[in-house]
Amino acid sequence: MSDDEGRQATMSTAMVEAIATEMRDNDEVFYMGEDVADYGGIFDSTDGLLEEFGHDRIMDVPISETAYIGAAVGAAQAGMRPIAELMFVDFFGVCMDQLYNQMAKNTYMSGANVNVPMVLTTAVGGTYSDAAQHSQTLYGTFAHLPGMKVVVPSTAYDAKGLMHNAIRDDDPVVYMFHKRLMGIGWMPAPDGPKTAVPEEPYTIPFGQADIKREGADVTVVTLGLHVHRALEAAAKLADDGIDVEVIDLRTLVPLDEATILESVQKTGRLVVVDEDYRSFGLTGEVISRVVEAEPDALEAVERLAIPDVPLPYARPLENRVIPDSDDIEDAIRKTQP
């Protein structure tokens, strides 16, 4: 947990600070992506890095995701620590082979003789009418395919510690940052992602969920933007005497099953909230982990996710399919006796 004291930073500032520190400490770290140099990343993911590190290490690349992301795989296998940015996760389709057949599998296929110490950064999420090809999270897709560690920060404090850990990790890490949380001027963030962030480097180990709010009556398991929406719902429900625990997964691979189980044993009620598609995904996975481990722990369970449709453009349509804090509130109420 972050302390409330000290310097406040946006999620993008915190993420960039970790990248800059690692780049200063290690010449093998470099960043490739579209519009990451002079623009500083469309979502501020590399803001200010060009000035310090120059075009050799903050590399603008052709709109050829297969080539440059595949090149990151090769450079990583040669011992460097590249960071490659996929501007929107929705573009994974044009480079998926390099991601899931090469990056994710080379370690296993080589009997772990080869490793791939790279980070794939990518922007995820909706809420601003960017429609079907620019609004997905695809959390479940990346977490489903074995061989990638999957990180989803929800606060500046977490973003920094998780980024340090991602760059130092010897395996491929997919670092998914939610656009709405970055603190970009033109896409105002909700309250919450901007937190106190220590100036010095620190790591947050993967596989440790964070209890963002403790509560006794119901467990909400979520990630990314929906951590903040769940906290909002929890604050409202507190007035009605419903005490909500909010668990921020922070990493999907590895998944912190222990924290979820412990919470559910306490509350007996579970709501899983996701911004990815409903079927064959995160909500079903979390629920089945609980049911497998503790078949009798649950008195009530609900899930919220995108109802298996692509993300629509018009505001009333998009609002209909992305869970908001009212939806979360309703779902929580349904679990109460």
Partner: peptide, 25 residues
């Protein structure tokens, strides 16, 4: 598209026009 597509995803089959927001697709 009844509001589902938006400005990057215009489809008008009457004149065989379509778009994609993914580069070169």
């Amino acid at each position: 598209s009844a509001g589902k597509g938006g400005h990057m995803h215009l489809f008008d089959p009457d004149v065989n026009f379509a778009c994609s927001g993914i580069i070169a697709q």
